[in-house]
Every structure is written in C-alpha cells, then in structure tokens.
C-alpha cells in the first residue's frame, strides 16, 4: 500500500491542476462565506439566521471545486490513457482506488480545514457589524463553543465525504465530464425537488436521503429539533452515499476492462 500511496501522491502532486483546484476551494469557500456574512443583517428584535450556517455558507460552492479535483483524480487518467499504465504497474485495482481515496482525503482535509477556518474567522469579523452582537444575545463565533466546533469540523468532514463520493462516481462513470455532471446533479438537485413537492412527509423523506441537505445538517446550531435528522446522523447519510459510491466504483473498476 505504501508504494501505491507514493505513486498516487506523485501523480496528483505533479498534475498541473491540483494546486490551483485546492487554492480554488479555499478561495471560493472563503469568498462566498464572507459575502453571505456581509449580506445578512439581524435587527435588534432578533432574526432567524443561524450564524454558523451563514459563516460556513461558502462550503455549498466550495464543494463543487472539491468535486472537480476528486473526479479528475481518476477520470483524468481515463482521459489520457494513463489508467492502463497505472493498472499495469499496480494490478490490484481496489488498492489503487483505496490509495487514490487516501491521498484525496489528505488533500481535501488540508484544504477544507484552511477554507473552514478562514470562513469562521471572516464570520467572526464581519457578523458583529450586521447585528450579531453579544448585546443582542448573539455571542461571537468561537470554536470553543461546542455546536460551532461541531459545525466547523463537520464541514471539513463534509468536504472530504463529497470528495470520496465524487471519486466513487468518477470510477464508475469514467468520463470526466459525465462524472462531474452526475455529481453536481446529485448534490444540487435534491434541494430543488424538495422545494417542488408540497407534501410534508415526502419533503422530509427526500431531505433525509439527500446527500447535500442531510450532510449540511452538520452546520446547524439553531432549531436543531425541527430538522428531520440530527447533525451527525445527517453527515452519516452522506457517508453512506460516499461509501456506496466508492464500493460501486471499486467493483466496476475490478470487473471492467480499463
């Protein structure tokens, strides 16, 4: 496994896009979070906004960049034909996928942590100017606060799981464009469908199985009881999606000709 890890790390490190995509994840997440924090305002009478969700809002866009990185990790090889060399050098295919997953997890963890920390810092600096002040019963964002720490750490895990989900789908689909289209479709379209159905039970059911809605429950720090799933259970739903995608992708990788 060490050799495979080293091989995958070398490949990912030397491909031109990786650095830029990681930087893109951090910048996009930070920029969108800061913009959301700057746009929200809370009158003294109080407001319904969850400061954790607002300050981590950029994750909803940053995940798209993470998905690109993850898809390219394997689809890029299919595009160039490199995959044949890879599989000739490392014939145990599931190990190749596992090595890719590990390297990807490490990179996403690093970039995600940076992105989330920067977003929280931006929220802490910007939100008090928009009415989220201790005087109005809205304490400053702080990672020492249990729910906030859970939201921040959970958001990093969320990004990692999105990367693994994308990797699994890309291993199954192979074509990079189709893979990234499928990932984005899976992520962003559940929320729309949930809005479209007016039946409450269906709404809650769809919400529970939606990778993005359920996964982002980890960011909620207010109105927890009204959510269809608890934060960690929500992240668990996304983990199930990611595991299923990796399993399916790994199986297809083993069964098919490259």
């Amino acid at each position: 496994m060490r050799q495979q890890l080293h091989a995958e790390w070398t490949k990912l490190r030397t491909v031109t896009g990786t650095g830029r995509l990681l930087l893109g994840t951090v910048m996009l997440t930070l920029a969108v979070s800061a913009a959301a924090a700057a746009a929200v305002s809370c009158p003294p009478a109080g407001c319904d906004y969850d400061p954790a969700e607002i300050s981590l809002f950029g994750v909803q866009l940053g995940q798209a960049v993470v998905a690109i990185l993850a898809v390219l990790t394997i689809s890029g090889e299919y595009g160039t034909g490199m995959i044949r060399t890879t599989l000739a050098a490392m014939p145990v295919r599931t190990t190749v996928l596992a090595a890719k997953a590990v390297v990807l997890t490490g990179l996403t963890l690093a970039a995600g942590t940076l992105a989330v920390l920067a977003s929280v810092l931006a929220g802490r600096l910007i939100l008090p100017g928009n009415g989220f002040t201790p005087a109005h019963g809205r304490p400053l964002l702080s990672l020492a606060d249990g729910p906030m720490l859970r939201a921040a750490a959970g958001s990093v895990l969320y990004l990692v799981l999105i990367a693994l989900l994308s990797l699994g789908i890309a291993a199954a689909v192979r074509d990079s464009a189709v893979a990234v289209g499928s990932v984005l479709g899976l992520l962003y379209l559940f929320p729309v469908v949930i809005l479209m159905v007016s039946d409450q039970d269906w709404q809650r059911l769809l919400w529970r199985i939606s990778p993005m809605n359920a996964g982002l429950a980890i960011q909620a720090t207010t109105h927890l009881s009204s959510l269809p799933l608890s934060p960690w259970a929500g992240l668990g739903v996304l983990a199930v999606w990611a595991a299923a995608a990796l399993l399916g992708g790994g199986l297809l990788l083993r069964l098919r000709d490259a």
């Binding site: 913009a35 959301a36 746009a39 929200v40 305002s41 906004y49 969850d50 969700e53 607002i54 809002f57 909803q60 866009l61 929320p191 729309v192 949930i194 809005l195």
Partner: peptide, 11 residues
C-alpha cells in the same frame, strides 16, 4: 442558492 437555501434575501 437564491431560491432554496439559507442565503439572506439581499444576497
């Protein structure tokens, strides 16, 4: 984001 998320109305 504008229609189905927690994004503030102004944004």
């Amino acid at each position: 984001l504008a229609t189905v998320s927690v994004l503030p109305e102004g944004a």
